[in-house]
Each structure stands twice: as structure tokens, then as C-alpha cells.
Amino acid sequence: MFGKVHNIFVTIALLGLTTLLLTGCGDTPPEPRLETAKAKAEQCVEPTDVMRKDHMEFILHERDETMYEGIRSSKHSFKGCINCHIPAADAQGKPVNYLTADHDLNPEHFCATCHAYVGVKLNCFDCHSDNPEGAAPADSTHANVNGNGGVAHE
């Protein structure tokens, strides 16, 4: 009897998985927002296919080098990614944040486009700045939260 119940669960799980996979097939991957970076350089710090696969490896390696060895000249710098790939401001002149004011992933943010699609959660921006240096933070979507404390966020 136990075996039977077990089989039913396995079947349901397989069905669910297949449905999930099929749903995935229906979607075309989103175009990563490359125009900002393309305007600045013809080519990323590594060939595109390498970057697609290994960008996190590069960032992780750079992170430890900077953190523990004080090396701040790596071309694989996190700051470099942000400065090149994220526009200084959106159409309304506001900085482009990883999350929108409603705490959803912002489709305008380069990192968010792909990471939302592949469902890989990023926690870089818990601590790191998500937009280029010098992009007036006062106008940010979150400025009211962090600055004057006007709006409570949940």
C-alpha cells in the first residue's frame, strides 16, 4: 500500500516538473539590456560567451583579491560592471535601481533582466551600490526611504 502512495507522489511530481519545463520552453529569454554598455565599449572585459558563463567567477575572484590583498586594479571589478552596464539615469532622470520602489526586480536594470529570467537570486545589492558612481542618489527611488525617512517600506 505504501508503494502505491509513493508512486502517486512520484507521478504528480514528474507531471509538475514537465509542466514547469514546458512553460519555460514557451518563453524566449529576455534580451539583456546591453545598449548602455555597448555605447561605452565595443567589447566587455572578456569575450561575450566567457562573460555569460563565468562572470560570477570573475567577480568572486576579484572580491577576495580586493578584500584580502587590497588589489584595486582588476579589470573584473564589480564596480566596473555597474559603471558600464547600468545607465546613469532612466528616461525620467532617475537612477536605475536593481529593485523598483515596490521591491520587484527592475526590468531596466541589466543584472535584474537575466537573473529574473534564470531565477537566480542576487544578494550583491544588499550591500553594494546598484547604480553607477556619481549618479545622484538623492533622486533615487529609495531616496525617501534612506534619506529623510518619510516613507516606511515593508
Partner: peptide
């Protein structure tokens, strides 16, 4: 608490 718009050179977080 959660922070936003940290300085690029000085990451800080909840």
C-alpha cells in the same frame, strides 16, 4: 535595517 544607495566604495548592508 535594509539599506539602499550605499556608496560604491563602501558597501554596507542589513
Amino acid at each position: 535595517e535594509a539599506l539602499f544607495d550605499q556608496k560604491a566604495h563602501s558597501p554596507r548592508g542589513k
